[in-house]
Design a protein around this nucleic acid. Structure first.
Lengths: 190, 190
DNA sequence: GTACGATATGGGGCGGCACCCCGGTTCACC
DNA sequence: GGTGAACCGGGGTGCCGCCCCATATCGTAC
């Protein structure tokens, strides 16, 4: 379901170069890096970039697709663990750290969940919801999580933490701390 | 300690007009509204805007200063209530809703907490930390909150929620739900 | 009420950006 | 190798943030 586009060889080559350049540039300057600069570094004209990626969000999705896949694979792995509650928490922590340390990812996911007309309904968001949903289901079955908690809310919360900690010194530690706080709550456990 | 600047009458007038125009424009287009457009609507040259507010963050701080003061006053009021835990939670909810429904505020607070060289160390952030810190102290005294929870973490979390929900349809409801989730935690209460 | 220096103003210039048009080039297939 | 379709990218347009400096305005002392 993903092999409809690859038309010509040079187009494919440029596509890959653009994604690679975008990856580097976004890592340097965040989610709103200069598209012109990306095109320049990729060695293509800016028109080519705009043809391949009609919107900035499309480019971000392409750049982060692989990384999100890694997170989803991790979720599948964690799903095998006996303690479903801990598995879910571990995964959410991993997502938060990933988002906090990978510049632009959190922003991309946030905007992706907003877009009025998602071209192919924001894939990254959907992937995470799918993988996390399974973990949450298991946690629910184990009564490790309150029943009214939804995966969308959890991911929004975790992504919010990524967003807020991205760029801090030691973003990973801060993201972890905040996610733990959010998942555990503020009241003392009685 | 805030009356060092007001020098000339026309300057003051332009300053106020710029802030008013910025308020309207930010409400329309979010935290990265066009500064040129703001200057235009304020009836001043763009140079004047840049002279009064050397950085975008400075303008945001000026725009949101009053609103943040309202929140702080609300905190002082809540501090009188007998149930310190509930007071803290109510206030954090209010902050989240305020941030989620006031375009640009959350972004402003986020960036304010980051700035390498805060001109007069981001005032809005400091005000909230001060007012919220008192509420948290009371909650700590009442043992309504785990001792390792800090006000900075709480505000970061709440602001993260604002950031993530700003722009959603019914941002207030979503922000409230997520804050409640974060403050309560995901595990069932035993 | 006038004159004068300090203070503030804004038109206009500069560099950079996103986005798009269209003549020219390159590929894939025969 | 030839041909049509797919693709490319230089360069144009309009908008932006930011800054310089000749000019206008204010506050004050007389």
């Amino acid at each position: 379901m993903a092999l409809a586009k690859p038309k010509r060889a040079d187009a494919r080559r440029n596509y890959d170069q653009i994604v690679a350049a975008a990856e580097a540039e976004i890592d340097r300057h965040g989610a709103d890096a200069s598209l012109e600069e990306i095109a320049r570094r990729a060695g293509v004209g800016s028109a080519t970039l705009h043809r391949h990626f009609p919107t900035r969000q499309a480019l971000l999705e392409a750049v982060f697709h692989d990384r999100v896949e890694v997170l989803c694979a991790q979720a599948d792995e964690l799903a095998k663990r006996p303690d479903a509650g801990a598995a879910l928490v571990d995964w959410l922590r991993a997502v938060a750290v990933y988002g906090a340390t990978t510049r632009g990812l959190a922003r991309s996911l946030l905007d992706g969940g907003r877009d009025p007309a998602p071209p192919v309904d924001s894939t990254c968001e959907a992937m995470l919801v799918g993988a996390g949903g399974e973990l949450l289901r298991l946690a629910h079955d184990a009564a490790a999580v309150r029943p009214e908690v939804s995966i969308v809310d959890l991911l929004t919360l975790v992504n919010a933490v990524s967003l807020a900690t991205e760029g801090s010194t030691d973003a990973a530690a801060e993201a972890t701390r905040l996610v733990d706080l959010a998942l555990e709550g503020v009241r003392p456990r009685g």
